[in-house]
Amino acid sequence: MRWLVTGAGGLLGHEVTAALAAEGTDAVGLDRRALDVTDPDALAAAFARHRPALVVNCAAYTAVEVAETDAARAFRVNGDGPRHLAALCARHGARLLHLSTDYVFPGDTDSPYPENHPTAPRNTYGRSKRAGERAVLGLLPDRGAVVRTAWLHGEHGRSFVRTMTERARGHGPVDVVADLVGQPTWAADVARCLLALGHAPEASGVFHATNAGRASWYELAREVFQLVGADPDRVRPVAAVAFGGRAPRPRCTVLGHDRWQEVGLPAPRHWREALAEAMGRIG
């Protein structure tokens, strides 16, 4: 069974293709230069050439702030792209695992959002990702899975964890937002979740692939400082409003993980355990 990974040049796409290679799975990874998911003709050609039985869509427009003034592009990548992929998968009998985000929720509760909770995004980025979710679930009700993740960090590309690691090795105080809460998530753990879903042929619907627990950006930064041997008291808590920005941000987007047990797969581990292991990789 051949897998096709779109967006293979990104932080998560790197981890997925590496995990597939490690287990010896027949897989093709295409970055955005090799495959533009907004181009139906290019997608059709990729399907004709590679004939995938399963597609993992890691391609995404993730510039949350820029999306507020670039909505058309955000919806092309995050809405139209998954729709084109889902239509091709339906035509060719393939499965699709589509990556989405916690930003489809408003962030107005302290309780974990279950997978079936109604979506109500607060910004353009979140609305564009919801459009992609709806396309996948509508066109592939039995062979499509929406996998929501959040606060990704990993070995490849930029992330908050990498930035804080660099700041920890410097000097002086570091101001970090303390009133936005979510789930720091190691991309390698998400890749493992995706492979597990891919090997479970009956798994479809919505899944949450975030590390367990919860933290503010401030708490995450302090943990990073602690792990690299820097003084965590250099991290100073500030309100999100201090950083401004066009895009409204959800206050608390902790995601529940009940569906993993329903399909007989292990739920993701706690973010602190994952971060401790990840820190050894990002250098």
Rank of each mutant, 00 (worst) to 15 (best):
V241D: 11
A19G: 11
V190F: 02
D189L: 10
A267V: 02
G264R: 05
R259S: 09
Y113P: 04
H156L: 08
G24P: 14
L152V: 01
D80L: 15
P40K: 04
R236L: 15
V206W: 03
R33W: 11
G7S: 12
A278G: 15
L85K: 12
S216D: 06
A276V: 09
V104K: 10
A131M: 14
G29L: 12
A188P: 00
A34G: 15
G213V: 10
A60T: 05
E155Y: 01
H98D: 03
F75T: 07
V28C: 10
L265M: 07
G138D: 14
V263S: 06
V64C: 09
G182M: 04
A178F: 00
R251N: 03
V228A: 08
G132R: 13
D110L: 13
A90P: 04
D70W: 02
A274F: 01
V104H: 03
N116I: 02
G138N: 06
A71T: 06
D36K: 13
T163P: 00
G10Y: 06
E68R: 13
S159K: 03
G13K: 06
D110R: 14
G213N: 06
T25R: 15
A22G: 12
P237I: 11
V263H: 04
H156T: 13
N123A: 13
V235Y: 05
R167C: 12
A94T: 03
A168S: 13
R49V: 10
A8R: 03
P40W: 00
G13H: 06
P250Q: 08
W3K: 08
R95A: 07
P82Q: 12
P106F: 04
V181N: 02
G24Q: 11
N78L: 09
Y113Q: 06
